[in-house]
């Protein structure tokens, strides 16, 4: 049995320790907001926060997050930074197909939590590890910048 905090609540799962966090979220717990993209930590669709830092859930063994705080897209709007990013996403109508957007938002929040006033270059660098096959990068960039302004 592996225990961790999921979106603020204690959670216990009875799975092999090397099960990826993504499998636990989607298959064991039925939380499908976090997406399976490439499965090899390259696209960023599965991004979650572990103790506040972004991680690729598809390559993170569940045993490695025991006792830690896992935050997913379902709860990212629970603080002012997450809320500002969500608002900016809606304002800029960022989403096209939407598949990558959970990861994009998690990455954007991680950026603004460490760098409240990111430059254009900071945004490009921080968001470069999250791929979008629809090519919504311009809108993503604008939304991150707008969220930072709203939080200033």
């Amino acid at each position: 049995m592996i225990s961790f905090r999921l979106n603020g609540q204690m959670q216990q799962v009875d799975v092999p320790g090397d099960t990826p966090v993504l499998w636990v979220l989607r298959d064991t717990l039925g939380m499908t907001g976090t997406k399976f993209g490439c499965g090899i930590a390259v696209c960023g669709a599965c991004t979650v926060h572990i103790d506040g830092e972004q991680r690729r859930a598809c390559v993170t063994p569940i045993e490695s997050v025991a006792g830690q705080q896992v935050t997913t897209i379902e709860a990212i709007g629970g603080d002012r930074i997450g809320l500002a990013v969500q608002d900016a996403w809606v304002k800029h109508d960022v989403v096209q197909c939407g598949y990558c957007q959970s990861g994009q938002i998690m990455a954007a929040v991680a950026l603004l939590k460490t760098n409240p006033k990111p430059s254009d270059a900071d945004i490009d660098a921080a968001m470069s590890a999250n791929l979008c096959r629809c090519g919504t990068y311009v809108r993503i960039h604008a939304a991150v910048k707008d969220a930072a302004s709203a939080l200033a």
Binding site: E53, Q54, R55, R56, P61, S64, A125, A129
Partner: peptide, 11 residues
């Protein structure tokens, strides 16, 4: 941060 080695390189 926010793009650290541990973002993609797990345990």
């Amino acid at each position: 941060a926010p793009l650290q080695c541990a973002t993609c390189h797990s345990t």
